[in-house]
């Protein structure tokens, strides 16, 4: 084996090693916290008090916030994204679709901090006025911004899934006298279902992991929000806001890594389900 081939093999296994290292390292930093923690109050409690004595670290509020904002982003983003993908894949002439696809790909490059800034200066004041709130910095505004941010992921993946449906399916449907509308909703979309579900799951993973936007727009209140129209702080924002201020090996430091581990586990699960949905489809076909 020439040495170059050995080098690329090493590079390949570096990826594997890194993934394991990230999980193990974050888990190792979180371990001292979980060792002290005897019950499930970390997940079920509402109090995050890092400077009181004794300090309390409970993350229910952050988990609920993450859940609310992600749900909002998906509920608003999904219809828009999936219907757009149907237009791209089935309605528009090929040349037009190709151009529009590249526009969607361009919008992936807009940094999340820029979306956060727009949310802060444009969306939040707008939401405050429309719903007559004291502050527009709420989960609702953050969810709204996130729903636009997940569009490129949703559209490109759903579009890909729709285009992967064999042409013969549509032709058979037309041959039976179905209209284009019937063909799209009775034949093509059901055939692409697993790909579309995977697209939604991956978009969800992105929304859960999004940090800067929610840090800037969601408002940052530490307690469990009663509704989506209240300020809140998702788990990503909690980590970004506090980790550099926590003294190394302090209880807060370990608690933040514990929160990071929970976040890692959630996104891991969502992505694994998405992968399983795709693989399962391939196995069945």
């Amino acid at each position: 084996m020439p040495y170059q081939q050995k080098l690329v093999t090493v590079a390949g296994y570096t990826v594997l090693l890194l993934t394991a290292a990230i999980f193990l390292f974050v888990a190792a930093q979180a371990w001292p916290f979980f060792r002290e923690q005897v019950d499930l109050s970390f997940f079920t409690g509402d109090r995050w008090l890092p400077v009181s004595s004794p300090p309390t670290f409970q993350i229910k509020g952050f988990l609920v916030s993450s859940l609310m904002i992600t749900t909002m982003a998906i509920v608003v983003g999904c219809p828009l994204g999936i219907l757009s993908a149907v237009s791209l894949a089935e309605l528009l002439p090929r040349q037009v679709s190709v151009r529009l696809r590249s526009v969607f790909e361009m919008t992936v490059g807009i940094p999340s901090v820029v979306f956060g800034f727009l949310g802060l200066t444009v969306v939040a004041p707008f939401v405050a006025r429309v719903f007559n709130l004291n502050t527009g910095l709420t989960g609702f505004s953050a969810g709204l911004v996130l729903s636009v941010m997940v569009l490129p992921t949703l559209v490109s993946l759903a579009d890909e899934a729709l285009r992967a449906v064999p042409r013969e399916y549509a032709e058979a449907s037309y041959a039976l006298g179905a209209t284009r509308w019937q063909t799209i909703w009775r034949v093509i979309v059901p055939a692409a279902r697993s790909g579309i579900i995977a697209a939604v799951l991956l978009a969800m993973g992105r929304a859960i992991g999004e940090t800067m936007t929610v840090l800037m727009v969601a408002g940052g209140r530490l307690t469990t929000p009663g509704s989506i129209f209240e300020p809140m702080r998702p788990i990503t924002a909690l980590i970004a806001a506090e980790v550099t201020n926590a003294a190394r090996h302090s209880e807060q430091y370990h608690a933040l890594f514990a929160a990071g581990l929970v976040l890692f586990a959630i996104t891991f699960a969502v992505n694994a389900i998405a992968a399983a949905v795709i693989v399962g489809k391939k196995g069945a076909a």
Partner: peptide, 10 residues
Amino acid sequence: GVPSVVFGLF
């Protein structure tokens, strides 16, 4: 699929 803030933590 790992969120960027988790990379940051690591």
